[in-house]
Amino acid sequence: MALIEVDSICKRYVRRARTTGRGAALRGLFVREKVVTDALSDVSFTIEAGELVGYIGPNGAGKSTTVKLLAGILTPDSGTCRINGLVPWEERREHVARIGVVFGQRTQLWWDLPVIESFDLLADIYRLDRTHYETTRDRLIDRLSIGPFLEQPVRQLSLGQRMRADLAASLLHRPRILFLDEPTIGLDAPGKLAIRDFVRTINAEEGVTVILTTHDMDDIEALSSRLMIINSGRIVADGAPSILTDELARNREVVVDVTPAHGGEARPPEGTLAAALERSRTRWSLEGGRFRFDVDPTVLSVPELIRLVGEQYTMRDISIETAPIEEVVRRIYARTDGGANAPTASS
């Protein structure tokens, strides 16, 4: 049995809308219109113990709702979910004792307390055995380099320090599952690296299952072995990050700087190169001696393309790039959009 089993969960929010127009305030006292939002529509997935899953989607796509359901905060309208064999919202207290949750936007610690005292208090809240707790705590302090600010009140910490302290706090009771909701939001580059490094370590060395929501694609590329994309309340893609790129963004951008064989301006492709480009429907441009090819490697392989270019031109430099994951994700959002979350950028 999988560690986390989510089966056709639906969650709908009903909001009372304020009407506008003449007399709206008065009318609002008696008739209120309902606005129904489908936060999650028929969401199913399973996660095995030890996985590190990146969960992404545009704002309002249903990420937080999913995390809240898995954390036992929300009840779905229909569908089932079992984690460790427990239904999170029915056995909330037993369930939350076995998971760790970090909300990147707000701290779990006590604002006016020194970090170490927040930890001690959590040990009491989770009813931890003193010696076990101290061993775990000291190891976390060491690994996350919390020592230097252990005695400082949380309100005086930098965001990076606070995030590290929050991560430690979420792991004191040694949960087997860790939910991280935007853990790198607002952090500087070293801060992000420290968090990623640590998350990778606890997943790899201690087998903690991690579910990570983020907007930062670098988090995904650095961490996840699996990527789930949600949009408008539906899971629209699920697989290894590389598979997503392979399937949805196969094209390579090949840039070649050339010198014409007989001096002067480089002339447009001719002969076999022109025929191959035509046949493979490769888009290309040539400007000031620089070629840009947008090539689908399953139709025209990159080595073949370069060989053909080499027949006609003298090459000075070559670079080959895969579409960045941001671009892939943006395309997926655009393609699967329900209308509400139209991306602002256009291709």
């Binding site: 809240k68 954390a71 036992g72 905060i73 909330r92 207290r93 037993e94 939350v96 004792a97 998971i99 949750v101 909300f103 707000r106 779990q108 809240i125 989770y126 009813r127």
Partner: peptide
């Protein structure tokens, strides 16, 4: 939500 994720 912070209150809800505590086993108390």
């Amino acid at each position: 939500d912070r209150v809800m994720v505590r086993p108390r």
